[in-house]
Amino acid sequence: MKRLDVVTFGETMVLFQPEQMLPLEYVSHFPKRFGGAESNVAIGLTRLGHSVGWFSKLGDDPFGRYIYKSIRGEGVDTSRCLYTNEAATGLLFKEQLAPDHMNVYYYRKGSAASKMEAHDLDEEYIASAKILHVTGITPALSESCYQTVMKAIEIAKQNQMIIVFDPNIRYKLWPAEKAKSVLNEIASHADVILPGLDEGQFMTGKEETEAIAEAFMGQGNKTIVMKLGSQGAYFHTNNEQGYVAGFPVQQVIDPVGAGDGFAAGVISGILRQEPLQYTVRRANAIGAMVVGMSGDIEGLPTYEGVERFMNSNTGARDVLR
C-alpha cells in the first residue's frame, strides 16, 4: 500500500453559495460547490504537494457522487469512501449580507456522514499515513462518529503517527458541557492542537493566550498553535514560544475555510520539518489568501503560490521568546 503523508475524514456537504450579497429569501440562483473542514484541509495539503487520503460516508445520491468525484479530482485519495442509502448527503447554504457578515445554514441532521461507524475504518489504510488529522466536528455528528474518531486515534497512536487536532467547534451540534468534555479528551491524545482563541478559552477556562497554551501543555508534550485572526497566531512548545504576525488582507470576501487553510499550512510545515516559526507564518499567509476569495477551497494556494505571496507581503515583525 502506498504510504500517505496525511489521512483525514469527516463530513463534506454540498454547498450552495449565491453570488449576490442578499438575504437568502431574495436569492434565486445558487451555484453548486462543496465544503467540509477535513476535505478542505486535504485539498489544501494536496495543492501544497503532499499525498493525502480523505474518506467519509456519503449518501448514495447525486450529491454524494458529486462530492466524491470533485474531491478525487483535486488529487486527494478517496478510495476508502463509503456510500449508504440509509441517509442523504448533507447540504449547507451560505448567506452573505456584507463583506464581514456571513451566515451559514446547515442541513445535516441524520445525514449520511453521521452514520460513520468505527468498524468502517480501514486500519491498514490509516496506519499507512504519517499524520492523522481530526476535527471536533466529526464527534459532534453522532455517537457512532465519536466512536469512529476515538478508534482512528487509537490506530494512530498504535502506529506512532502524529495526531493533529483542530477543535473547529460547532456549538449548534451538541450541548456545551459534552462538547467541552469530548474536545478535551481528544486534545489529550493529540500531538498538535490548533485552536482559535475563543475555542481555547472555551476548552480550558483560561482567558489569556499564554495561559490557554500552558493549560493544553499540562496534558503532555504538545505543540500548540493558536489562531488569532488578523493578529496572526501564537505557538507554544516545551522549547519555544512566540507570536507570528498576520498578513494584511485588502478585503475579506469569505472568511469560511480560513482555519482549514491555516491547518493545511501547519501540517505542511511539519511534514517538511521546517522551523515552527516559518511554518506558522506560512499558515497565516494561507489563511489570508483564503479569506480574499469566495468559497471554501477556491483560495487554497499551491506551494509556489503561497511562497510568492509571502515574499511580496512581509507583514509585521514576529515576537519570539
Rank of each mutant, 00 (worst) to 15 (best):
G287D: 02
D260I: 01
A129F: 07
V244Q: 04
G59R: 02
V76W: 11
W54Q: 05
N313Q: 09
G36N: 08
A288F: 02
K180H: 13
L15A: 13
Q17S: 15
S79N: 12
P31I: 14
V256R: 05
L300E: 03
I137L: 12
F202R: 00
I137D: 01
V225D: 13
F247E: 03
P301I: 04
I212V: 14
I131S: 03
F216A: 11
T138L: 07
V6D: 03
Q20M: 11
L58Y: 13
M217C: 08
Y83F: 15
E74S: 13
E298S: 15
A88H: 07
E95I: 09
Q231M: 07
G75M: 05
C81R: 04
L48W: 09
V149I: 15
T223Y: 02
L91R: 07
R3E: 10
S144N: 14
K227P: 01
Y303F: 14
A42L: 11
L45M: 07
G218D: 13
G44M: 09
Q96V: 06
L15C: 10
V256T: 15
E208S: 13
T78P: 07
K227V: 11
R170A: 12
I297F: 05
L82V: 00
T204M: 00
V41F: 00
R72H: 05
K115I: 00
S230W: 05
A179G: 08
T12R: 02
D61N: 08
L22W: 14
